[in-house]
Design a protein around this nucleic acid. Structure first.
Lengths: 200, 200
DNA sequence: TGCGTTCTAGTATGTATGTTCTAAAATGCG
DNA sequence: CGCATTTTAGAACATACATACTAGAACGCA
């Protein structure tokens, strides 16, 4: 019973993701968002509220499209393979990232999470979600013998989360294959289990 | 032969470090810098140039006071102990970081390095410096038998750098002791060497 | 066909931004 | 004691910012 939207909400969010992803929250202006999304400021404010709440929508949109998606795809694999494929994708994506945007979630962790309790909760929850995914992998892997039992599944999952963050940060400054794979190698070796070390 | 400065350059830099450290580059305004440093805008521009070049000085100042300092202190220790103490300090500092500022260098890696080639070089160089410190530790540790030889000293050093980044990022969103120590535990176990795994 | 509603377009609004200017104050050297 | 030089103080600058407003256009339903 009213005039219909002339824009596709998802397409606008995609464009907004691109802006915030590339520049970060503060450095992205509403004018740039308007230019990049192709809709007017009025439409943008009408549909998404102010800049901050648009960023919230953008973050959700990104997480759904990138993080949740990857987890879902990896969950289908056998546990240790899931972890390996997960990190292979991360390394590949990081090395192919010509404009060094990194991961919007990791960027948000330093950009917006420390100053904004609401966003901090969102980011923390997604990080927990990733940790839980890793935990499922390490637990299942230890159960079926493909992952070493020398450390608890919980500890391994936390370690994997930390290494993931490390790779994504370093890749934005030193996107060198040798470095990223070097970070990862000891972790993978540890999962595999050192020969003859079935824990005390 | 001219009017002397009324401010202490180092004190001003300390105050400026605090500003950029807390808010990041874009979110820190020159007015805030003026307020926090106590000198006028004219003095600030006269002494340090524009905002960007002040940030450069701030970064150097921080690196010298924090990073280089810590490396120097740890270099005096036996190699494996040096790594342990290094990370103990990082974890302790991260957990005591009430306003979640994290590490200015790591912040700069995501905040400023991806968009500014000059700053990228600076940040990358410091990261290399840290990696070199780790490398010296792993090499010496492998030589004196306190660090496992199942992986190369180079790979271990890269891994340590990655884990360091991971801890500093996660601490800003989830500053939980269990998490940070969980990230670290597998790495330390790996250095120590699994019992009976002296490589193939 | 007209009414109510929600959209778009573009401009206006006030504030905050980074930076520079004007003028006065403070030193060392002649 | 001035002259040259540099620092200060604070207002002034233009621009960029996030956001709100004013019109009018496009639809569904009566």
């Amino acid at each position: 019973m009213a005039r219909p939207r002339e824009f596709d909400e998802d397409a606008v969010l995609d464009a907004a993701v691109e802006c915030f992803w590339k520049r970060g929250y503060e450095a992205t202006s509403v004018r740039e968002l308007v230019a990049r999304t192709g809709i007017t400021a009025a439409s943008l404010y009408n549909a998404f509220g102010d800049k901050r709440s648009l960023y919230g929508r953008v973050l959700d949109h990104y997480v759904e499209a990138s993080v949740a998606n990857r987890i879902q795809r990896c969950e289908a694999l056998p546990p240790r393979r899931a972890i390996e494929v997960f990190f292979e994708e991360i390394v590949k994506r990081s090395l192919g990232d010509r404009d060094r945007k990194g991961c919007l979630l990791v960027n948000a962790a330093l950009d917006v999470a420390p100053h904004d309790p609401e966003f901090r909760k969102v980011v923390a929850a997604v990080l927990v979600q990733i940790e839980v995914f890793f935990l499922a992998c390490t637990r299942d892997g230890q159960a079926d013998g493909t992952i070493a039992c020398s450390l608890s599944a919980e500890t391994l999952a936390q370690h994997l989360l930390g290494v993931l963050m490390g790779i994504r940060v370093l890749a934005r400054v030193r996107p060198e294959r040798a470095l990223l794979e070097g970070i990862l190698a000891p972790t993978l070796a540890l999962l595999r289990g050192a020969p003859g070390s079935s824990g005390t």
